[in-house]
Amino acid sequence: MDRVTKTLLAIVGVMIILSPIGILLVWNYSDAWGEWDVNTVEQMVGQKLPGMEKLADIWNHAVLPDYNVPGWEDKLHASIGYIISAVVGTALVIFLYYALVRFVVGKGASS
């Protein structure tokens, strides 16, 4: 691994540890995240949105929804949940990346 990759890897590590900044900075903004459920949007525009209602919950198997452990609502717990999400997400992304490289390029390339 070259020097640039090593440095970037260190940056990735620091970004995992500091990730709670990403929610704490916008803590009071949370209801404006664009995370609105259908009901909120319907209330805001004053009309029913049948299409959105049907599709919105098409996928509800997220293990760590909104990058948090379900139920960890206060700042401290949400921060820990966020770090866990950062670790899990980073691991999954790198795993999938190497799986893809192996699949496309073959074995030799992924060292």
């Binding site: 070259d2 640039v4 990759t5 970037l8 890897l9 940056i11 990735v12 970004m15 995992i16 990730s19 900044i21 990403g22 929610i23 900075l25 916008v26 903004y29 995240w33 990058y67 966020y82 999400s85 950062a86 997400g89 980073t90 992304v93 790198i94 990346y97 190497y98 490289v101």
Partner: peptide, 16 residues
């Protein structure tokens, strides 16, 4: 390098 940049992209999107 691309692997670590992919991880970087995932993480940088967590910084709202």
């Amino acid at each position: 390098l691309l692997g670590v940049l992919t991880a970087f992209s995932f993480l940088v999107m967590m910084y709202n």
